[in-house]
Simulated assay, not measured.
Amino acid sequence: MGLDILTDDSLSPFRHGFFARKGGASSGIYQGLNCGHGSSDQTACVDLNRARVAEALGVEKTHLLTAHQVHSPDVIHVTGPLSQPLPKADALVTATPGLAIGALSADCQPVLFADTKAGVIGAAHAGSRGALTGVLEATIDAMENIGAGRENIAAVIGPSISQPAYEVGPDFQEEFLDQDPENQQFFKNGQGDRLQFDLPGYGLHRLRKAGIGTARWVGECTYSDPSRFYSWRRACHNNERDYGRLIASIRI
């Protein structure tokens, strides 16, 4: 079975993809291409899934790199394979050919970055916490530090939870408004005191405000399409014990 890969022309000619569930070796609640060793899936299945992603990107499986994600604004510049235990960070950048850098997600925003002129790429995991504390801007800064030009950077947000599916409480909203009252535009009223948060809209806002060349979202909701995407929130609503992780990756 072939893989289901979303791509975007703004990241070309670099090989890249937002990989959906199709074509994986995992079964049960992880059915499909689960690429997260942080899940309780069988290690052999996750290894095989990641090897299929590496093959699709044309790199050695040891050169498909992801970090130990902790919802932080921390970024690592990588120049070779990462050793175990994986460093804690939520974004990677590189200018080294032959490396594929990626982000794992299951509702949070996976964001791929490219400056095709300078030959610099980035990959970030940006949930609400990471986006609020600056992981997107930190990734852009780190790319500039290794030769990228801010005005030449393209960023694409992959499949993420959409506003109708992302219900939050007043305390969540208050934290965003405390940082910037203009963040009210990313909330709309739900039932009772619940609100709905526009995570990809907020991500696009932060990216565009950072002054990069282009920024867009692929328009796919992880929560709403269980056949294609994993979703932490959907797993919680279904009382499932765990969930798979999607991968987004790019290489020079």
Rank of each mutant, 00 (worst) to 15 (best):
G32L: 04
S72I: 06
A103Q: 06
S83D: 11
P97C: 03
Q69T: 15
Q84S: 12
L136S: 09
G127K: 08
G98D: 13
H125E: 03
G32K: 10
G28Q: 06
D115C: 04
A91R: 10
P81D: 03
G130R: 09
A114Q: 09
G122K: 11
S39H: 04
L99V: 03
H71L: 12
A114I: 00
C45A: 14
R50Q: 11
G102E: 05
S128Y: 06
C45S: 12
T43F: 07
H68V: 00
N49V: 01
G122T: 01
H125K: 07
D74G: 01
H71D: 11
A54I: 03
S83R: 15
S27A: 11
I29D: 03
G122R: 10
K117T: 05
G130Q: 09
A56N: 13
A142P: 01
C45F: 12
T43N: 13
A114N: 11
S39L: 03
V135H: 10
H71F: 12
A54W: 08
T96F: 05
M143V: 01
A114M: 07
A103E: 03
Q109A: 09
V111R: 12
Q84K: 15
T94N: 07
T94R: 12
R150D: 00
A118P: 02
Y30F: 15
A131P: 02
I146E: 13
P97I: 03
T96M: 13
S72N: 07
E151I: 02
Q109N: 11
D41P: 00
G38P: 01
K22Q: 15
T66R: 12
R129D: 12
D141S: 10
A25L: 10
A114D: 05
S40E: 09
R52N: 09
I140R: 12
L112S: 04
G58Q: 07
S72L: 07
L33M: 08
A142Q: 08
L86I: 04
E60S: 15
G23D: 07
G28S: 08
A25P: 01
I140G: 02
A142N: 04
G134F: 09
A54T: 01
L92N: 11
A25M: 09
M143A: 05
A148T: 01
S105A: 14
P85L: 09
T94G: 03
R52A: 11
E151R: 14
L104S: 10
D107I: 02
G24F: 06
K88C: 10
H63R: 15
L64M: 11
V120Q: 10
V59A: 10
S72K: 09
L99C: 07
V111T: 14
A54H: 06
G149N: 14
G130Y: 05
S40Q: 13
T43E: 15
E55Q: 13
D115A: 02
L57Q: 12
Q31G: 01
P81C: 01
G58S: 04
I76D: 02
L86N: 06
A123I: 02
G32S: 03
K61W: 02
Q42M: 12
A44T: 13
Q109M: 15
V111L: 12
A44S: 14
G119R: 10
A91E: 10
V135W: 05
L82F: 04
D74L: 13
S40D: 13
A114T: 01
A131F: 05
